[in-house]
Amino acid sequence: MLKYTMKRLVLMIPVLLGVSFVVFLLMYISPGDPAKMILGEMAEAKEVEALRESLGLNAGFWERYLNYMKDIVLYGDLGISYATREPVLTEVMERFPITLRLASSGVLVSLCIGVPCGIIAATRQYSIFDHVATVLSLLGNSMPAFWMGILLILVFSVQLGWLPSSGYSSFSYMILPALTLGTSSAAVIMRMTRSSMLEVIRQDYIRTARSKGQKESVVIYFHALKNALIPVITAVGLQFGMLLGGSILTETIFSVPGIGKLMVDSIKNRNYPIVQGGVLILAVIFSFVNLAVDLLYAYVDPRIKSQYRGAKGTLKREKNEEEEEVQGCRKRRS
């Protein structure tokens, strides 16, 4: 397990190098001059040029990229924001808890909706519940976040006046953004729970449990659900990672000052260091979330854990199985 974890950590290095290169290149080739964006329309050419020089924007691509990577590798320095002159790491990490809180709330919403609906849809396959759940999941998955967000604002803020429409300060401010984020993830989790549950409840041990006369609720919630949820954990983990980096629209609609909104504003203003650093930090977080999901998967499913033992373990296991088979044949012959 430790070896597997180490291997995954080492594999992250080329991934992060690739991410840093692609983002740097994209910002480099995108039109727009950060110096002009900072100084505004009235700035004269010589002022713009002086600022470009002081920001190091006149150097070539490779020089800038290598300097950037050198600062990251040697000093852990992601640069300074063009707009605020604050370190990128400070700026991004100041916003990260907000995005983390939003993504966590979104995942909780999706779990609360997705898992029960998936179970009902599977246990009552082709019933009206299944059809309604299928239609709802299709709607949830296809409804764009901006539309869903505006709809929720109109209903819960404007019509009913129950919840605030934008901002970030207390629990009530997070409800509508979390619902917006959670709805589309709920659809994915519901479909996953349904299909996984359908597969499990058709297996022999479930039939055995039923034939022993156990209550249906015990069969479903104690015998079937725990195995059916194994692939759902992976889906939830991936959704969580995606919500961390993909809540840009939701943050913009509800004016939640998370990383997504910071990135959008920084792209508009050509604040290169924030965009590059922000994407890199998100990539690191996403990689760690993926690794955590894989390790968690192994923890809850011993079959997976055995596969993580590596090639040596696998060969040993195969050899044992072969020996058992040979011995079985010998016994049958005798």
Partner: peptide, 11 residues
């Protein structure tokens, strides 16, 4: 065009 690109093209 998005503003930064537009501004660049005009300038």
């Amino acid at each position: 065009l998005e503003y930064a690109a537009y501004y660049d093209a005009v300038n």
